[in-house]
């Protein structure tokens, strides 16, 4: 009963905050970027909430539960990627005064490159929409086990849609404060304290792990250095071009604030959160024996170590972690779809664009619900196929910001084609070089970017 009550309270709070804040939304820019006027600390919380999703919370804990100390590579790889994204890209992106990634590409490299990037971005981010909606449903069924997965996914999708369709980015940034408060309280304070006390501290945890599975105490003892470095590089570089936070970076009041808020969010909240989630998974080796699948270590620990009321609050934090990311990726997909796909075919005034963004959001979430429910394998395939987007974007972003003069439409188009072809062919061939297909595609596209852009570069004619 307490679980159901907490779930209802959380959902009601999200809706009230979102709807009240959302009444301020009047224009398409209010909806997409909160009129580029998000206060510094509000943006810090919002960026953290968008970054922290099912992968960061359940994934990090699961890796350390399954692989021990070696499992920390996921947190370290993702964390370093986020720091690089903040330091290298955030300020520069905000300086461009754009709202979407394709808009940025169109501004510098023309329509054809932007169209290709728009399609790749939508495809890649949509896979995250579907997986986050599925995660939302899965967590709600932990509160109310009598609910079917589809019904739980439907309820959470409707809740997410109500506040985001009304309030867009304005509502998202306000509700993110509640989400991040719950997440920090649960994953960085309550759960570690409970785990440490129950397991007899770090000494007790290491002693228990040494007795049961000593390899889990050795760095690279369970997965090997090659996998750790390859996967760490994968998560680090793919995290550098972060679609989830693009709208929030664009919504900052200035380039300096965008960079500062992004870096504060990463160093103060996101990176420590990843390490804490990993630590909880590591403590789980000592506390939870014989768990069927490592993915459910965090909910299993909540169930085993806490009472009903505290457990319900901790589960609400998991719901909050996924809700922020789900809302964020759905918004990115719908804004990109409205501005960079539909907007290319029909001219729209501000009022119409706002309506199209809202309708797109409902369509994207509806499709995400169907794909997320009926095809968990489709979602994982889409995530794999979404890799070319990252492989193309990382070198193009670096080229745009640090090699701008030489970058040209033809060279970039060749880079995109090579990124897509090399990633997919290598993936279909079964990743023969033992590195991920994303990393292979990234290496190919980076080399191509330098060669193709240099070869296709034409010096601008100087008028007399």
């Amino acid at each position: 009963m307490a679980k159901i009550l907490i779930a209802i309270l959380y959902i009601a709070a999200i809706l009230v905050i979102g709807i009240i804040a959302g009444r301020k939304v009047k224009t398409a820019d209010d909806f997409a970027t909160a009129s580029r006027n998000i206060p510094y600390w509000t943006n810090v919380y919002s960026m953290s909430s968008a970054w922290i999703g099912a992968g960061s919370t359940l994934g990090c804990a699961s890796m350390c539960y399954a692989y021990g100390i070696s499992g920390f590579y996921l947190a370290i790889g993702v964390g370093i990627g986020a720091i690089l994204a903040s330091v290298v890209f955030a300020g520069r992106i905000r300086q461009e005064n754009v709202s979407t990634i394709p808009e940025l590409i169109r501004k510098h490299l023309g329509k054809t490159c932007a169209d290709c990037i728009a399609l790749l971005t939508i495809f890649s981010v949509f896979s995250v929409v579907a997986s986050q909606i599925r995660s939302l449903g899965t967590i709600l069924t932990m509160f109310i086990p009598s609910l079917s997965l589809f019904m739980a996914m439907l309820i959470m999708t409707v809740v997410m849609l109500i506040y985001t369709v009304i309030g867009g980015m304005v509502a998202a940034t306000k509700t993110d404060k509640l989400n991040i408060g719950l997440m920090v309280l649960s994953v960085m304070i309550i759960l570690p304290i409970i785990a440490l006390v129950r397991a007899g501290g770090v000494a007790g945890i290491t002693a228990a792990v040494r007795d049961a599975e000593p390899l889990k105490l050795k760095v690279a003892g369970t997965v090997g250095w090659a996998t750790m470095i390859s996967s760490g590089l994968y998560f680090g570089t793919s995290g550098m071009v972060n679609s989830e936070n693009f709208l929030r970076v664009c919504g900052a009041r200035s380039a300096k604030e965008a960079r500062g808020a992004s870096l504060t969010s990463t160093l103060l909240i996101y990176f420590p959160y990843l390490l804490f989630a990993s630590f909880i998974g590591f403590a789980g080796i000592a506390l939870v024996k014989n768990l069927g699948t490592s993915d459910s270590i965090l909910p299993a620990m909540v169930n085993q170590l806490t009472g009903t009321f505290l457990g319900a609050i901790l589960l609400a934090a998991l719901l909050a972690a996924v809700m922020g990311t789900a809302a964020s990726v759905t918004m990115v997909t719908s804004v990109t779809l409205s501005r960079d796909v539909i907007g290319r075919f029909t001219k729209m005034d501000d009022r119409k664009l706002l309506t199209v963004q809202r309708v797109s959001m409902i369509a994207v979430a509806g499709l995400g619900l169907i794909v997320g429910y009926f095809g968990s394998s489709i979602v994982s395939i889409m995530e794999d196929v979404g890799a070319p987007c990252g492989a193309a974007l990382v070198p193009i972003f670096c080229g745009l910001f640090f090699w701008g003069k030489k970058m040209n439409a033809k060279g970039t188009l060749i880079t995109i084609v090579v990124a897509v072809a090399s990633t997919l062919i290598y993936w279909i061939a079964g990743s023969p070089l033992k590195i991920s297909h994303f990393l292979f595609g990234l290496i190919c596209s980076t080399i191509t970017m330098f060669i193709a852009n240099a070869a296709c570069y034409k010096k601008p004619e100087v008028s007399a």
Partner: peptide, 30 residues
């Protein structure tokens, strides 16, 4: 519970305190 355990708890609580401090400060300023 040893020294390292308290360090972990202090870091977690410190981050939590900082997050809530700025959240309340921003709300009060409005």
């Amino acid at each position: 519970m040893g020294f390292i355990d308290y360090v972990i708890i202090v870091i977690g609580c410190g981050i939590g305190a900082s997050v809530f401090y700025h959240m309340i400060k921003e709300a009060v300023r409005k």
